[in-house]
Simulated assay, not measured.
Amino acid sequence: MEKLKARENDRRIRRSTIEVTAEYLIIAILALAFIVPFIWLILSSFKTSQDLFRTPPRWLPETWTIGNYIQGFTGFPFLKYLGNTLFIIVFNVIGGLFSNSLVAYGFSRIKWKGRNAVFYLVLMTMVLPFQVTMIPLFLMFQKLGWIGTFLPLIVPSFFGNAFFIFLLRQFLVGVPYDISESAKIDGASEFTIFYRIIIPLAKPALTTVAIFTFMNCWNDFIGPLVFLTDNKLYTLSIGIQQLMSTNDPRWPLVIAVGVSMTLPMLAIFFILQKYFIEGISFSGIKG
């Protein structure tokens, strides 16, 4: 019997070892699939045009140069476009955090008639892509005289986003109602509970919303292209497109600027990944 048990344990150990090895192998293959193109992008940013289009292609540049990055910062108004992009991002993050958290609080912590029906109606707006509402929005902003300003890219963030409302609502549902009830007994108003109790508990979800908002604004191309008419107000995404739309696009320069735009997103993710993962997994306090 002891021998049979020992053999069975050995089989289980072998199976678990094989399963773990297979899992790590699959993860490694998937990681390479994402990392290899990014490594190629970084190496290509240090190449000359001749090295970039060499046949057969080579991983390492024959002549290393940082001229692409220097021209990327000086060859076109990079800092101006960067400032415009950050200006839009700051107000979108502020507006998104305030509006989405407030609406999500109403859907998750306050009981009122028709709450679920309205919530489902809000979720239904997620199926409408921006391309469908683009023309009505353009006509509305044109009537308001906002075309050619940052207002069409900033003001909508103060009216909520269906996905972010859903994300925060699912997180806040996990916060015990006893906390709110205890605060009400002590005389706290709904806004006091929202500001002093719920907001601090929802930091992971709010951080996730901030990261997604940053990424959306940082990569947004259609919005600035449609609503901005002055070259001085352009964002980085349009600036890169201007480099690509010339008769002789300088691809190493375009790649260098692309790398410069990717690094901030990676840095923000790695710095805030703890809160990002907690927010995505909806790991609120459980009652």
Rank of each mutant, 00 (worst) to 15 (best):
L121G: 12
I135G: 12
L139Y: 10
L144T: 11
N116T: 06
Q142K: 13
L139I: 15
F119D: 06
L123W: 09
V127L: 04
L137Q: 15
K143D: 15
L139E: 13
V132F: 01
M140L: 15
F138I: 09
N116P: 03
K111D: 03
I110Q: 01
F119I: 03
M124L: 15
W146C: 06
K143Y: 12
V118G: 02
F150R: 13
W112M: 08
L121P: 00
W146E: 06
P129T: 03
T133Q: 10
L121Q: 02
F138P: 05
M140V: 15
N116I: 07
V118E: 00
I135P: 14
L121N: 00
M124Q: 07
R109E: 06
L151M: 10
K111P: 04
I147Q: 08
T125R: 07
P136M: 06
L121K: 00
P129W: 01
P129E: 07
M140Y: 14
G148H: 11
M126N: 00
Y120Q: 09
M124T: 08
M124Y: 08
F150S: 12
K113E: 00
K111R: 13
T133F: 02
M140A: 14
P152Y: 14
V127C: 03
N116K: 09
L123P: 00
P152S: 15
R109H: 02
A117N: 08
F119Y: 12
Q131I: 13
R115N: 07
F141N: 04
L151T: 08
V127N: 00
P136K: 13
Q131G: 06
N116F: 09
Y120I: 06
L139P: 12
L151H: 14
G114Q: 11
M140E: 14
I110R: 01
Q142L: 12
P152H: 13
R115D: 04
F141S: 08
K143M: 15
R109M: 10
T149W: 02
R115K: 09
V122S: 00
T125D: 03
T133Y: 01
M124W: 06
M134H: 10
V132D: 05
G145N: 03
A117L: 12
F150W: 13
L137N: 15
N116G: 01
V127A: 03
P136T: 14
G114C: 04
V132K: 04
F141K: 04
V127G: 01
Y120K: 05
T149Y: 04
K143S: 13
M134Y: 04
A117D: 08
M140C: 11
M140F: 15
K113A: 01
G148V: 14
P152D: 08
A117G: 08
Y120C: 04
W146L: 01
K111N: 07
M126F: 02
T149I: 10
F119T: 07
I135T: 14
F119L: 00
V132G: 04
L137W: 11
K113P: 00
I147T: 05
K143H: 11
Q142G: 12
Q142Y: 13
L151Y: 15
